[in-house]
Nucleic acid binder design. Structure first.
Lengths: 135, 135
DNA sequence: GTAACTGCAAAATATTTGCATCCTT
DNA sequence: AAGGATGCAAATATTTTGCAGTTAC
């Protein structure tokens, strides 16, 4: 699985990439850079984590989730993402209690009617509240 | 106008707060910390800008706009915001060309049906594309 | 006069870059 | 073997904190 994804994206298979990609595959929900550092411990250099995450975003393996604090959240993209162009228009849910972010893959971002003159390209939606685990 | 807002929120009227609030009032769209520093020049200490923005957010004078890069964008709240609880559920638009962020006050965030177990509290929506100025 | 706000210095944190070395193909 | 990925060091950028001095009310 991990190998398939890396190869499909023409990335050489290294320990760091394998490990970080596994984290995303096993960990339902989104991860921040800090989460990944915590989960990988002393395994890799901090810089490697930065570079790996950037590479994954560029290739369309993971995508960015909008946040209001100044943090960057990453989550796995579903099948139909291509490099540089994502089609992941599903809603993201951030739990106020456990702070975990979940991709609601089955909930698509609704269309909205924009004022005259505005041409939409991509829409993101984030809902906060209480998640299934914390209810 | 500026004075009214500050007094209504029980904030003492200082040069920094007046100036920064004016920036938001005159500058349609959203501002990042860096924008404000640029526009105020050497007027205030960098730390004062940080503290002022935090104060404004706490009081509900401005609100945070979700972004996918790790930056914090601030925009004026409309009338019905209270300290600690915003009712600004309008859509934000970020232009791919000029990069300006606009509050689409007349476009409200649509409701979405969440999976069972999830209880919504607040929803944010960001649309990217080409704005009225750049079309 | 007192409480609150500011500026400065410094610490803590986060991110980027260059380069030599190592690993993948 | 060659190109790409990594680790380390260091430069940059960002944000927070403490404290003394100043200002608003």
């Amino acid at each position: 699985m991990v190998l398939d994804i890396l190869k499909k994206n023409q990335l050489s298979v290294t320990e760091g990439r394998k490990k970080i990609l596994e984290l995303f595959l096993h960990n339902e929900g989104a991860l921040a850079h800090a989460d990944i550092e915590k989960k990988t411990g002393e395994m890799f250099d901090r810089v490697t984590v930065y570079r790996t995450l950037n590479t994954f975003v560029e290739k369309g393996i993971i995508h960015l989730i909008p946040t209001t604090d100044n943090s960057i959240l990453y989550a796995l993209c579903k099948d139909n993402c291509e490099a540089g162009h994502h089609h992941d228009n599903h809603v993201h849910f951030i739990c106020d209690v456990c702070n975990k972010t979940t991709c609601l893959d089955e909930v698509t971002v609704p269309e909205v009617k924009l004022p005259i003159g505005f041409t939409p390209n991509h829409a993101e939606m984030v809902v906060t509240g209480v998640c299934d685990d914390c209810k």
